[in-house]
């Protein structure tokens, strides 16, 4: 076992220090060390998107990031999406549009969709599907997820001009 390393990060706007072995993924650190289990593991090789987090200015699959790489980084996880008790418009839209069934992929979709709407305030259906193709859902056939993201875009940014 390699000695543990101290990592200093900002997670969901709070300074967080944690100790980890270099071989531990950031996903493992978030879940098992920091206790933020909202980020899920579905595949361990970056192909399902369930472990999506925001790392700095982009989204990543946290199963393919080492915990030690998070030194000095700013991280947003699903636990940081809502403002206190007020759900993010995407979270509300997912509920109103029944865009989840089992819910295991939902945290990853929400973080990914949030990044999409920051980049494209009014994404087309095709843009939305392309951006979210790194997130697998096996329950919904994606229909209600896409509709929820589009509805949230209108909620956040108003109707497209």
């Amino acid at each position: 076992m390699a000695p543990k390393v101290q990592v200093q990060t900002t997670i969901n706007n709070e300074p967080v220090q944690f100790l980890c072995e270099p071989r531990q993924s950031l996903l493992e650190c978030l879940r098992d060390v920091v206790g933020l289990t909202g980020t899920k593991e579905g595949c361990g090789d970056g192909n399902c998107g369930s472990c999506t987090i925001k790392l700095g200015d982009r989204i990543v699959t946290s199963c393919l990031v080492l915990g030690v790489e998070a030194e000095g980084e700013t991280i947003t996880t699903i636990e940081g999406l809502a403002h206190g008790n007020t759900l993010h418009p995407l979270q509300k839209a997912f509920l109103e549009h029944a865009a989840l069934q089992c819910g295991i992929c939902t945290p990853g979709f929400l973080i990914a969709a949030d990044a999409l709407l920051q980049k494209h305030p009014h994404p087309t259906e095709d843009q939305t599907r392309f951006w979210l193709s790194n997130n697998l859902c096996r329950c919904t056939g994606y229909d209600k997820i896409i509709r929820a993201v589009q509805a949230a875009a209108v909620e956040i940014h108003g109707a497209p001009q």
């Binding site: 970056g46 790392l55 990031v65 990044a115 999409l116 979210l132 790194n134």
Partner: peptide, 9 residues
């Protein structure tokens, strides 16, 4: 290459 998240890395 990969999807959005993969391209982040």
């Amino acid at each position: 290459i990969g999807g959005t998240q993969i391209q982040g890395r």
